[in-house]
């Protein structure tokens, strides 16, 4: 469990570091039981609202690029952006720095140790009921049900699936502060590769089998674009090609059907593959519960294999697909 101690230490640091003009990206309680929501803090008095715990599943890196894009005319950021992040989120931040989407001198990256997060949906599935409150104590979630009874669940029973794979939460080589100190739940097995060893990724699937997975999953898509909007690697924002059907892509009309859905997702897989850090947010936010992560893992590993590039590790390493050095062998 992400401990209260870490939460307090992060808040103390922010109190010291914060200057007028800075903005803090962190988490607060949303009012909906079991759901933490991001908060943008502009003044010192509000720092007390910050709450960091194992329900903080959002990747805050998605908000960074809009501070530095010219079409966001109402955002005038004079000071720094202080962002609190889990190691998986920190990788997204580092990848954006590496892609030169955000300047590292304007970012203060505070990372806290994490041994897995959960969502209210997973807790609901575990207790099989609605609940009115969740408290965190001694490495357990204490769930108050609608009939006022309470039930306690171990943290590892309800971890998000990406957290079961140790290779996805390695710390990047670039950060400003790192707080350690999780408590009282079982550590994630660093050698577990449960996400990465799916059949899709071992390329044992035939064309027909692959197509079947694609068709079954993408049939459900309702083109709400939540996956695109929550993705830190999708930084085209309001210039996205999907929003301009008449201009650029006359064959992608707005009608919602399998062919158009496949086209939309294939465009996204290919655009995002090199800088995707597999944070898993796309799958979490999908209202249709499409298993998007299997596709992103797949394309991501392909890129890794071909170009030997690991996203989100270092702010200095430039991804191969966007850079060329004189004399470099053509791909």
């Amino acid at each position: 469990m992400i401990s209260e101690k870490i939460s307090q230490q992060v808040k103390n640091l922010i109190q010291q570091e914060f200057k007028t003009g800075d903005v803090i990206l962190s988490y607060q309680d949303s009012g909906t039981p079991g759901v933490m929501t991001p908060i943008f803090i502009h003044s010192k008095e509000d720092i007390g609202k910050i709450l960091i715990n194992s329900l903080c599943v959002n990747n805050l890196a998605v908000y960074l690029s809009s501070f530095f894009q010219s079409e966001y005319k109402d955002i005038k950021q004079k000071g720094r952006i202080i962002i609190t992040a889990k190691p998986c989120d920190a990788k997204s931040v580092v990848q954006m720095i590496s892609d030169e989407q955000i300047p590292n001198e304007k970012i203060l990256l505070i990372v806290f140790e994490c041994d897995g997060v959960t969502t209210s949906r997973l807790i609901k599935e575990k207790v099989n009921q609605e609940f009115s409150k969740i408290d965190i104590k001694d490495g357990k979630y204490i769930v108050t049900l609608q009939d006022k009874q309470s039930q306690s669940i171990q943290a590892e029973e309800v971890r998000v699936s990406k957290c079961k794979d140790g290779s996805l939460c390695d710390l990047p080589t670039y950060y400003d502060y790192y707080f350690v100190g999780t408590e009282k739940s079982s550590k994630i097995d660093q050698h577990s590769k449960v996400m990465t060893e799916t059949p899709l990724l071992q390329e044992r699937l035939s064309r027909t089998e692959f197509k079947k997975i694609v068709d079954t999953e993408l049939e459900k898509c309702i083109r709400c674009y939540a996956c695109r909007n929550i993705c830190p690697a999708c930084f085209c924002s309001e210039k996205c090609i999907i929003d301009k059907p008449k201009l650029a892509v006359p064959f992608l009309d707005k009608e919602v059907n399998l062919a158009n859905n496949i086209l939309f997702h294939m465009i996204r897989f290919n655009h995002v593959a090199p800088n995707c850090t597999e944070c898993g947010e796309c799958e979490r936010v999908c209202p249709q519960e499409i298993k998007l992560s299997i596709f992103y893992h797949y394309f991501n590993r392909l890129v890794k294999k071909e170009f030997g590039f690991v996203s989100g590790k270092s702010d200095l390493e430039r991804q191969k697909l966007l850079n060329y050095r004189l004399g470099e062998e053509l791909v």
Partner: peptide, 16 residues
Amino acid sequence: KNYSEVCIACGACTFN
């Protein structure tokens, strides 16, 4: 702004 800063303008609320 308290809410719109955090909003990602995805449209999921309107669709459902």
